[in-house]
Amino acid sequence: MSAARGLRAVAWTAGAGGALTAAWLGLVTGAVPLDVGVGRRMRPLGPQTVDIAALRETVFDVVAHPYLGRTPRAMGEKLKVLERGSDLVLAEHYTPIAGGRLRAVTVETVRFTRPERIDFRLVRGPVPHVTESFVLEETGAGTRLVYLGELGTDLWRLGQWWGEAVAARWEATVATSLASVKSEAERRAAPRR
């Protein structure tokens, strides 16, 4: 009898461990979003500011083109536009995680207000709420791109802990994107030789 109990305990533990692992992977990758609306905690994202030696219209076009135009093949591993309108798209964004062994998928609406702002709103992802904006301001030397946002999680302190972990990765990904936008906009603005 005790051997049978021992086997049941091992089976139950393995099953529970497998279920927890599957739930964790679903949450981390955004495949199983958790949005219970209880104990919501909000935290800011950013601000991150980048000064770009290019006209505001050029910077706007660099950000908007993969969404509103044809998405370059090189961005296929990062972005897939699911639905495209004249000033609003629904897009999947892909972010490698766990050293590239996994991929987090977020689905967001992206709204374009030419030439001064681009707004993102999370539809599905590893947290229940994210809103973000790229605000483009003209400066004497070009354009200042300011990134601002907020991230919300549920379940009080547990959600707050999860939000901090997600926000660190989220903001690092945004910083990489902003550096890429700066590089491409300045390349386009550089005088032709």
Score class of each variant (00 low, 15 high):
Glu83Trp: 09
Ala31Gln: 13
Gly163Ala: 05
Ala172Asp: 14
Gly15Trp: 03
Arg144Trp: 08
Gly100Ser: 07
Ala11Lys: 06
Glu92Tyr: 04
Gly26His: 11
Arg117Gly: 09
Phe134Gln: 10
Thr153Ile: 06
Gly6Val: 00
Asp119Pro: 02
Gln160Gly: 15
Trp24Leu: 14
Gly39Lys: 06
Arg124Met: 01
His129Met: 08
Ala54Thr: 05
Leu45Cys: 08
Glu116Trp: 01
Val28Ile: 10
Ala190Thr: 02
Arg188Asn: 02
Gly76Pro: 09
Leu55Glu: 15
Arg192Thr: 01
Ala11Thr: 09
Gly37Cys: 04
Glu164Ala: 15
Val107Met: 08
Ala53Leu: 10
Glu138Cys: 03
His65Ser: 12
Arg117Ile: 01
Arg187Pro: 05
Ala185Glu: 08
Val28Leu: 15
Val81His: 07
Ala167Met: 02
Thr71Leu: 05
Gly149Trp: 03
Arg40Leu: 13
Ile97Gln: 01
Leu7Tyr: 11
Lys78Ala: 12
Val50Asn: 02
Leu102Glu: 08
Pro128Gln: 07
Val81Asn: 04
Gly6His: 10
Gly100Asn: 04
Val59Ser: 07
Leu136Ile: 06
Ala172Thr: 11
Trp156Asp: 07
Val63Pro: 00
Leu122Arg: 00
Trp156His: 05
Thr113Gly: 07
Thr173Gln: 08
Arg144Pro: 02
Thr109Lys: 10
Gly26Asn: 12
Arg101Asn: 10
Ala74Tyr: 11
Leu45Val: 08
Ala22Thr: 03
Leu20Trp: 12
Ser183Gly: 12
Gly15Asp: 02
Gly37Asn: 11
Ile118His: 00
Ser86Pro: 11
Lys78Phe: 14
Gly17Cys: 10
Thr143Trp: 01
Val36Leu: 13
Arg187Gln: 08
Asp154Trp: 12
Ala11Arg: 06
Ala3Gly: 03
His65Gly: 01
Ala189Gln: 03
Val166Asp: 02
Thr95Lys: 12
Glu164Gln: 15
Trp170His: 11
